[in-house]
């Protein structure tokens, strides 16, 4: 966790130092490709983990309901919060 944040900060410093370089405007594409690679390997790990696959059918449905509820609740609450924050910011920039 600590090293991840350090890597992020290191990247930010590198990006800031080289912000004039044109190459860096393509970083977004590199991020997308790496995300896809990571998803693929996460899939490989999930698919080859027999314990996860075995338990999947038995407890998967309950987990699915709970996961979707957690996501739905947090997303709905956060969307409301965003509306309020966003409106405030607009008002502030107008004044």
């Amino acid at each position: 966790m600590f090293y991840l944040i350090m890597t992020l900060i290191l990247g930010a410093c590198a990006g800031f130092a080289g912000r004039k370089l044109k190459v860096l405007s393509h970083t977004g594409k590199a991020v997308s490709v790496t995300v896809l690679a990571m998803l693929f390997f996460l899939g490989v790990e999930t698919g080859s983990d027999e314990q996860v696959l075995e338990n999947f059918s038995a407890l998967g449905l309950q987990a699915l309901i709970l996961a979707l509820s957690g996501i739905a609740g947090s997303v709905v609450f956060a969307a409301v919060l965003y509306r309020i924050l966003f409106r405030n910011r607009k008002e502030r920039s107008r004044s």
Partner: peptide
């Protein structure tokens, strides 16, 4: 890959 991603995300933020 996660470390690579963090570094790339860092770059895109730093160069923003």
């Amino acid at each position: 890959l996660l470390y690579l991603l963090m570094f790339l995300v860092g770059i895109s933020v730093g160069a923003n």
